[in-house]
């Protein structure tokens, strides 16, 4: 279907026409510039180039044909939002800003947003990697050592199911700064699922793999790191994925408790100022950040678990 590749470009054209031809409703506050129009034009140009490129390059054609309907949907969504807000003011103007105002908020607040993004990313990555590393190590210890299993498993069972944000009162007084406290909370949120999935992955390895490797001359540590860890990888990644998801939730909550900057803090602050276009701008940035991290995790997983291709689909 040739038309499918051109759909995003057509949708952009339609979005631009709607903006140019339909007069704005006076009841909806105007943005200080036609930011949505610029975004639509930029999007339309990119869509045109992609459609043209897909006719020239076979590999890209495959990707673009698959993605084109999705991007069409995104463009149509913003066009409908535009109609419901700026054009006819059907939705309450305070809570539902027009796309122009959302993009405008990103432009006017870009310096602060970038700073907040940096703070959030730092906090999230410190917490995530800290929690993931400690989680994997704990999981390996619990999976292989009977003593570790005896002492650590009950702790996991008692502490694990408590949402890490419930520790806020305790953590706030025991950590020197709000940043370290928040990083710890995120780490805790990642640690639990990673530990549980890693250790259960190791415990489920068929014993014959270990027996075979010992008859091939593998020592104790070689068996742990070259047999135990790789075969627990698939469930380790499930743990990490759950960890990423709960780390986002914890990040947003943690930033609302005395952080100086951060996307969660920004969204909360702007909400209190009743400035909803900035709230949405922040939310869009959070969504992009989270989905980027998850995509990255999936890419790493596909690389590491290439041997699973054709065995398990998830």
């Amino acid at each position: 279907m040739v038309i499918k590749k051109w759909l995003p470009a057509l949708a952009s054209a339609a979005a631009i026409l709607i903006q140019l031809l339909i007069a704005s409703n006076g009841n909806h506050p105007q943005a200080d510039a036609d930011y949505y129009l610029y975004v639509s034009i930029a999007g339309g140009v990119i869509a045109l180039m992609c459609a043209a490129a897909s006719h020239l390059h076979k590999g890209f054609d495959k990707i673009w044909s698959f993605k084109a309907p999705f991007w069409t949907g995104v463009i149509v969504f913003f066009a409908i939002l535009d109609i419901l807000t700026e054009k006819f003011c059907i939705l309450p103007a305070i809570y539902f800003p027009s796309p122009s105002r959302i993009f405008g908020a990103m432009v006017s607040d870009h310096a602060l947003l970038a700073k907040c993004l940096g703070y959030s990313a730092r906090l999230l990555l410190t917490g995530f990697f800290g929690g993931a590393i400690v989680g994997i190590l704990t999981g390996i210890a619990v999976g292989f050592s009977k003593a570790a299993d005896y002492w650590i498993s009950p702790i996991i069972r008692i502490l694990g199911p408590i949402p890490s944000t419930a520790w806020i009162p305790l953590v706030l007084i025991s950590f020197p700064s709000a940043v370290s406290a928040s990083a710890f909370l995120i780490g805790l949120a990642v640690w639990f699922p990673t530990t549980v999935m890693t250790s259960s992955g190791i415990k489920n390895i068929s014993n014959s793999l270990f027996e075979v490797s010992s008859t091939l001359g593998a020592g104790y540590f070689y068996r742990i790191f070259k047999v135990g860890v790789p075969s627990a990888m698939p469930s380790m990644f499930i743990g990490l994925f759950n960890g990423v998801c709960s780390s986002f939730i914890t990040l947003m909550t943690a930033e609302m408790i005395g952080a100086k900057y951060g996307i969660g803090w920004y969204v909360n602050w702007q909400k209190e100022m009743m400035s909803y276009s900035n709230v949405y701008a922040g939310l869009i940035i959070i969504a992009v950040l989270c989905s980027l991290l998850i995509t990255l995790l999936f890419k790493v997983r596909d690389k590491v678990l290439v041997w699973q291709k054709g065995v398990i689909k998830w």
Binding site: S206, S208, L209, E211, V212, S213, S214, T215, L216, G217, V227, P230, S231, M233, L305, W307, Q308, V311
Partner: peptide, 21 residues
């Protein structure tokens, strides 16, 4: 006294390491 590579073992199931080529 314990497993050793001079006594190789093959099980009924191939028990290959699935993550290795």
């Amino acid at each position: 006294d314990g497993p050793h590579y001079e006594r190789g073992l093959v099980f009924q199931n191939p028990t290959l390491f699935p993550w290795l080529s």
